[in-house]
Design a binder for these strands. Structure first.
Lengths: 149, 149
DNA sequence: TTAATTGCAAATGGTTTGCAATATT
DNA sequence: AATATTGCAAACCATTTGCAATTAA
């Protein structure tokens, strides 16, 4: 729970109140790290533990955390917005592999975009500050299954 | 208008009717190639020319074209879905530069992901069939202006 | 105590759908 | 003439908002 208290003190530092609803949302996010949950899924889990908390509060908490850059959201091809806790410092140095068969989302740590970004700067003078890269395809398991069918 | 008739015959080939609404939507898409219009913007332009055509029809036409892979849609950070006509054969070999200041969308033709994709296949056995890459930052004009301010 | 936060329900905005009327083949 | 397509309005779904009640500081 060291992660939880770290975020809690960041909230306090910025003058936000440490409410029960916020703690419950954070607990769900931490317990499900790496799962890329939707707001609906987060709400359901929070609601299971603490039925009093409403969807609006969940949304407000997610927005707050995103504004604080403790949380990131991303739209995937199924049209759903999914959330993931920031990985400490350089969060955005990872990409997503999305399996078109089982919808699994795998993270890749490589950041091989530096070279591309340099080229773009040289050629277009476009100053890049962030990027979003998703690969769509078939995960190991689904790809093997597919070949058998 | 060679582009329009090419798409028209593809529609016919697949047994779809060549209706006025479809032609009007296509004309707007072709006239605005490279602009990454939203459904709303497309509707407004279509509606200006032919007031009878409704939003639902525009949506149905966009979905049809997308299904036929003549059109691609993408969600940008402003949360809006934007459409672009497929560039002939290997449409997906380009990326987007999105200016965070003026919201301009610039296309880059480079496809330097092959190396990354090869690495991912080797390491993870994830079979990539498509990708989506967006760079966020500041275009030449906005970046220069920013420095002066 | 007091200002921020919450829960609820209503509002919003974008997209989809049912259906009877219409247009294309 | 037969069938796909359309326009309209209503339905839908995710997200946001207003407001009075509640809670953390």
């Amino acid at each position: 729970m060291t992660n939880l208290s770290r975020i809690e003190s960041e909230l306090k530092e910025k003058g936000y109140k440490l409410t029960n609803a916020r703690i419950e949302v954070l607990k769900v996010l931490i317990k499900n790290e790496g799962k890329h949950l939707t707001s609906q899924e987060i709400y359901e889990m929070v609601h299971q533990n603490t039925p009093g908390i409403g969807m609006a509060t969940v949304y407000r908490t997610l927005s707050l955390l995103e504004e604080m850059r403790l949380l990131y959201s991303s739209v995937f091809t199924d049209g759903k917005v999914r959330y993931e806790l920031a990985k400490d410092d350089n969060h955005h140095k990872h990409h997503h592999l999305v399996c078109l068969n089982c919808n699994k989302i795998i993270e890749v740590e490589e950041d091989l975009l530096e070279e591309i970004e340099k080229k773009i700067w040289e050629k277009k003078k476009f100053k890049i500050v962030d990027h979003s890269l998703k690969f769509y395809g078939y995960c190991k398991e689904c790809y093997q299954k597919e070949k058998k069918d």
